[in-house]
Amino acid sequence: MVDLLHADVLGGWVAFVLTLMVFSYLLGDNPLFRLAEHLFVGVAVGYAVVVVWRTVLVPRLWTPLATDPVANWPFLVPLLLGLLLLARVRARWSWWANLPMGFLFGVGAALSIGGALLGTLYPQVRASLISLNPASYGGQWGGVVDAAILAVGTLGTLLYFYFTAAREGRGVAGGIRRAWVAVGRWTLLVAFGALFAGATISRLSLLIARVQFLWNQIWSLIP
């Protein structure tokens, strides 16, 4: 029986070596990086299979059917649908797998649409109907400016994606429309920039975590 402490220590050093193998990609593609990559994918998939078998299939499907199949006969329906998914292994039988896939996609799409309407679309549209009256912000013009920027940016973004109307125009109206479309385009660029910055911060955080892990492993060797 391996001591848990020893297992943790061993696992920590295995992770240390694998981390260095991944960092070896800085030297170019090499077998060490490939080995670590394949190990990560294989272990992740294998672990997911074990978790699904242990926490889903056995306790929530096999056990009810094995203990009282008459009372738990509805569990046969998901079992049958799950078995039909295995028909993907042969091309001539693969269309049988369309039944459970259609069921899953249909129910999932219905729930997604319903949830998006009530949870995202309606609240967000309602939140965009803001007032520009300073009284609504307690007399602070900062709130008014903030609301104005939000309104102009939202409408400009909508105009930018309004492809059916001519963006070019003459006169004052055409100039305003072109300017508004430009504002919408820059609003999109700012939003994308914020997303990119967030992703960069996220990856930097992951790098920091790995560097801290490596240092802690090395520091643990120092008496």
Binding site: Q124, A194, G198
Partner: peptide, 16 residues
């Protein structure tokens, strides 16, 4: 959430 998901979720905090 992660820093990358923060801008996409900020509007849900701005609703009333």
């Amino acid at each position: 959430v992660s820093a990358g998901a923060l801008p996409a979720l900020q509007p849900y905090h701005e609703t009333e």
